[in-house]
Design a protein around this nucleic acid. Structure first.
Lengths: 150, 150
DNA sequence: TGATATTATTTCAATATCAAAACATTAGTG
DNA sequence: CACTAATGTTTTGATATTGAAATAATATCA
């Protein structure tokens, strides 16, 4: 479904690229989410557990930064994870403004079980690209991602 | 921030590609949303207006399909657009299960004003890639998008 | 024709998400 | 020390999003 927009060649190219990029991302992540690999975790909950698992305990602001989500959002996601006993929150005794978040045993066990399955699902999703194509896609996306505001 | 996962070369490549892809998409769309180009429209509302603008009136199920969103979601987004007088809903007299959605004059005027600005913002976002790179990115993303479940 | 299946939309409950305001705590400065 | 920044988190109100259940309308077929 290319754009119907009547614009310059540059505009049409950029728009079509944007549409394919967006649809590629959205359809891929939708398939991953629907694959059942995450069990009853939401994508956000998985993201938080995965960050804590691989990077270790950190405060909420750091989680917010890593996942590119607002602090208010992280507060809610952590509330839900805490209710289920998957993470623990502790006020930092050094600086009582901050809350240090860490995985509980249950949280660590769960993410240790789910993460490899998610990796397998991602490998399968990307298997339609050769290793060279994956490398290339990564490089192009990196250029789009890092752009500090010009 | 590459993956910290200790896996096979294939797994590490796929994961790193996935991370760059995700971050490229999320940081780019976050910048577009924050650019102010959309005024007080949300991204979803813009998506609906844009589809109606370029593809013409259609029923809710079609909108849902084009935007890859659930029908329940589209119902809500349309409620909000309808409150603002930007779209009109009419039961299809041929098949009264369906609701045909069309732009009002106000809706058409608004999207006609906003769309070119959004195009300009997208062109600017993609300007860090050469036309050849954009072409290539589009091709790679298309492979990821169209994959019917293997 | 009448029972059943299919299709389109809405409703509901839960989670996500943001921006802005409110709070709490710490840091800095005169 | 007291007043003011700045920082980190929570709260609030609005919109988004899904999946499942509920509704409504149409199609099918015995």
């Amino acid at each position: 479904m290319p754009t119907h927009y009547q614009g310059s060649a540059q505009e049409v190219l950029a728009l079509n690229t944007f549409i394919k990029f967006t649809r590629g991302y959205e359809s891929m992540t939708a398939r991953l989410a629907q694959s059942g690999v995450l069990g009853d975790l939401t994508v956000s909950q998985f993201g938080v557990l995965e960050a804590l698992y691989h990077l270790g305990s950190m405060c909420q602001g750091e989680i917010s930064g890593k996942l590119l989500k607002s602090c208010g959002n992280i507060t809610l996601v952590l509330d839900n994870l805490e209710k289920r006993g998957l993470v623990r929150r502790e006020r930092d005794p050094e600086d009582r403004r901050m809350v240090t978040v860490s995985l509980t045993q249950a949280g660590e066990a769960l993410i240790a079980q789910i993460f490899p399955r998610q990796v397998a699902a991602i490998v399968a999703e990307l298997s339609c690209l050769t290793p060279e194509e994956q490398e290339l896609l990564g490089k192009l996306c990196k250029k789009l991602g890092v752009r500090s505001s010009i």
